[in-house]
Structure formats: structure tokens, C-alpha cells
Design a protein around this nucleic acid. Structure first.
Lengths: 269, 269
DNA sequence: ACCATCGGTTCATATAATAAACCAACGGGA
DNA sequence: TCCCGTTGGTTTATTATATGAACCGATGGT
């Protein structure tokens, strides 16, 4: 592995639940030598990708990423373009809508929107990695990825929240196949209790899967009518988002979506 | 220089005016060998910090920075906290307000706000580097930086827009000294024609300069009254922003600011 | 048909990364 | 007060990795 990769890998240990990490702890987490870790972090700090908290000497993500993110959005306005449509989707469905992206083999939440109408909503946080195996977004995406990529992703060890029944690998494979066959994915109680989730894949201009658009619904208030309506609303929003991006829906998927759109009833467990 | 630094340096060549760069051009710009450049960019792409446009093979900033930026804001909500105050400042002054940060020796615009009241406004773009020598923000900041750091920054070659009279180094030094002495900086026609700019420095919890808060006013409509009012409004906003951050205004500067705040008239060329 | 340029690759060489051992400083606990 | 574990940081010989000139096939103009 290249030295640069090692340095960049260190950034992956910073998460929402662990935003600041000391030198020794980072070395322990990454398995790298402490001296190596120190040198790499020093270089990241020099470039503003990390910064050191003066009081505790702990490291955290640096301010340079703000400049890079602004530049990214100026170059490819993914998030900015999708946000209003995400908000519209949240209002239309009355549930939480979110968009996640495939970045470096991870599924990352990039944007989300809440409906204004309900007091109870499924809460989201961006910048967090979603598990492929337990989310509808993961299933929706994996159906459109090459087999070996899917294998590589699924062989990453995963854990399910203690209050949930974990999905067996065979079951995950099956759900991916179903998602591919019908053009959208649905899960219930796989990532969070009492949350039903629906997702469709999103594609770039080359017809490559880029991410997923999803609706996360609070289980108790889900009626059969809304279970049927959400996929259609998802598909409509996905089409709009990709129109903005210049994204290309594969012909096969477009046909599946048309089928769902013209159906009056469609329920999936 | 470490390999990681070389890789990260490559990211600096991507700007708003040059958002996508091909391999050969990037090698030419950076002075690195083409093979080296290729390998480094490949590693950056693997981690999502860069991405390659399929059609042209050009590189651009990748989607991973969005996750990092969201994580940064979740850890240190610099931008999010300052934005409403920035908007208030823009409305109060009737001019464009912006906040820039010191990151890795560069002055980067992180946020800005326009007033709703005027048709004509000074336009801003974030993610762009500002020249220290020709902006009030630069002058305001440099007054509170150690001498050797100032020297290092000022010896970077700079160019002024062709329609403007460039500031001589001695003049820049003088303006920095003035800014330090009165607690705020002002420039006119140094960065853009017919734009007057006012700025105050911003500090972190350790009392270190972090950036600057500024107002950029369209020259023609500047009256003596507003020239006097803007610094006071800047100071008030800066105090609010630092209160939110937990920033610490050096006692010396706080005294200077109080002086400006209690004055009824104050005009600087 | 030609030439320049593009992105990408190869491989001997040289340089930079590595890890164990070592500091000094700090913070409990006994 | 002493001890012990832990912290961030540094040094060093050893080793692995980065480097760059030359090369490749493809592409686009002239």
C-alpha cells in the first residue's frame, strides 16, 4: 500500500461518534506504528486536512476540507442540486428522505430532509457510513454493481444492532436480487427498530451506480397505501435528480420503473 | 518533502477557474514526474478525494470531501455557526459580508452573505484563495501573526489585477501595522476596482488568529457615515461569532475595539 | 502519412518510510 | 512520596517504497 493511502486511511477513523482521536489511540485503531502515525498526521495537519486541538493534543478533521467541499460542489453540484428534490420527496411521502453515495467502497449519507408534517420522524445524520447489508439503499445499489465488487463489499464483517434480528448473508443476497428484479428495495427493522426503508439506485452520466435515494418511514404509521405509494414517489424523484445530474438510467431499470409506476398496488415484505 | 504532502499538494491545483485537470497538465503544473503524478492521483482517487471524469480522463475533486466537510462541521461548526451572523451583518451594513479562514498558510473564503436590499453588490465565491497583500482581511490577520510567519507569507509572489495600482511591499507592511494599531483594516481598489473593504481578525479559544470577518462595499455608494459605521458593525459581529466559537479576543485588541465602538467618527483611507 | 500529445506502464535506482527503543511529562493510586 | 502506566514526541539503522527516463498504444490535427 502506498504511503499516501496510509495517511488517507487515518482520516477514516474519524467519525461522528469519535470526532477527535489522540496519537496513541489512532495508532492503536489503525494498527500503524506510533511514529508512522505521528509523521502522517503531521503531514495531514500541514495541509489542513487534520488539525490538532491545542488543549488535548488530539487530532480532528481540519478546515481544508471545507474549501475542498465547496470546490467539489462548485464543480459537481450533487448535493445542492438534490437537496430541494429531497425536501419535496420528504414532504410528499411525509417521511424522512435521504441520499447516500458510493465513495471509496463505502455508502455515505450526503444529504437528507425531514417532512414538516409529523412530530415523529426517522432521524438521520450525514457523513456517516451506512452498512450495505442492512439498508434498503445498500440493497438497491448492490443489485447494479458487478459481482466481484458485491462480493468484496459483502465480505466485510458487519454487525446488527443488538435489538434487531441480523440478516443472514443468503438473505441479503436474495434481497439484492429482488431489488434488482423489481427496480427498488425495501427493508423493515434491519437497521433500526420500527423503521421501514425504501430505496432506488442513482446513476451517473456513464450509467454507473453512484448512490441511492431512500425514504425511511416510521413503522407504526405505515399503511398499505403508503407502502405502495412510496416506491412510485421515489422513482419520480430519482428521475428528476438524474435529469439534473445528467444521469443515465439503464434501459433495463427504466422498464422496471415504468412497470412500478403504472401499477396501482405493490407491496413487498 | 513527504510523499503524502506531494499528493495533497496536487489537490491545490484544482481551483474554481481550473476545476478539472488532465494528467499531463497536472504534471506540468506541479513539476512532478508524470508517473509520480499518476500514482499519487490514483491513490487519491481510491480514497475518493479525487475522481476521474470518464469521458475526458481529467481529474477533479472527489466526493469524499463532502463526507469530511460534513464531519468537520459536526465537530467544529465554524461555518454553520457564523452564517446567520454573517447574513445579519450583510443586512445591517447593506453590503456583502464574508468570512475567510487561515488554512495551511492560505486565506480561504469559507462563507459569505449578500444583503437583500441593493441590486448592486460585491460578488463573492467561496473556496477561493484570497491574496493577503491586497485584501483588508489579509491585513487584519497579518497584524496578529508572528513576524516570521508574516515574512513567509508576504514573500510569496503576488499579482494585482491589471486595472489596479499594485500595493508596494512597504505599503503593505504599513497597512498591516495600521490595522494592528486600530484593530481593523480597510482597503479600497486594491483587490477589485470600486470596492472598499473592511475587516477584523477572528481568534480561536487559544487566542490564535483563525481568520477574518469582512465587509466588501461597492465604492460609489459609500458615504462617510457608512465608512464610520461599518467597522463598528464588524466588531459587534466578530464579538458575537467568537462568543459562539468560544474564541478569545486578545485583551489588547479588545481595548482597541472598545475605542472604536465608543467613537462617533472614524475614517480611514 | 506524419507528428505531437494524450493517459498509462515499466524497471533499475535512489530516496523516503518504517518500527523498536527511548524520552520527558503527566496523572492517578497506594 | 513513590510508583506505574500512559501520554505525545524523537531517534536510528533497516528496509520498503517512491521515483523518473524511456517506452507504449491511442487519438487528433495538419
Amino acid at each position: 500500500m502506498g504511503t499516501t493511502s496510509k495517511a488517507l486511511t487515518l482520516l477514516d477513523y474519524f467519525t461522528r461518534t469519535r470526532p477527535q482521536i489522540g496519537l496513541s489511540e489512532l495508532a492503536r485503531l489503525s494498527g500503524a506504528n506510533k511514529a508512522t502515525c505521528y509523521r502522517l498526521m503531521t503531514e495531514l495537519v500541514e495541509h489542513g486536512l487534520a488539525e490538532q486541538v491545542a488543549a488535548t493534543k488530539e487530532y480532528r478533521i481540519g478546515p481544508a476540507v471545507l474549501r475542498l467541499a465547496a470546490l467539489r460542489e462548485a464543480t459537481v453540484p450533487t448535493r445542492e442540486a438534490a437537496l430541494p428534490l429531497l425536501q419535496a420527496l420528504a414532504v410528499a411521502t411525509g417521511e424522512t428522505a435521504h441520499m447516500s453515495h458510493l465513495v471509496a467502497g463505502n455508502l455515505v449519507t450526503l444529504a437528507f430532509a425531514y417532512p414538516a408534517t409529523h412530530g415523529m420522524r426517522v432521524m438521520m445524520e450525514d457523513a456517516d457510513r451506512l452498512p450495505f447489508h442492512a439498508t434498503s439503499s445498500g440493497h438497491a445499489i448492490l443489485g447494479w454493481l458487478p459481482g466481484d465488487t458485491v462480493d468484496r463489499i459483502l465480505q466485510v464483517p458487519f454487525d446488527t444492532a443488538p435489538d434487531l434480528v441480523p440478516l443472514m448473508p443468503a438473505e441479503v443476497r436474495n434481497r439484492i436480487a429482488v431489488a434488482r428484479a423489481i427496480g427498488w428495495a425495501a427493508t423493515a427493522n434491519t437497521f433500526e427498530a420500527d423503521v421501514s426503508s425504501f430505496a432506488v439506485p442513482l446513476f451517473d452520466a456513464q450509467g454507473q451506480v453512484q448512490g441511492a435515494l431512500a425514504v425511511a418511514a416510521a413503522g407504526p404509521r405505515l399503511t398499505d397505501a403508503t407502502r405502495a405509494a412510496i416506491p412510485r414517489q421515489l422513482i419520480a424523484s430519482a428521475r428528476e435528480i438524474m435529469a439534473l445530474w445528467g444521469g443515465l438510467v439503464p434501459a433495463e431499470l427504466s422498464a422496471l420503473w415504468r412497470k412500478t409506476e403504472t401499477q396501482t398496488e405493490k407491496v413487498q415484505g
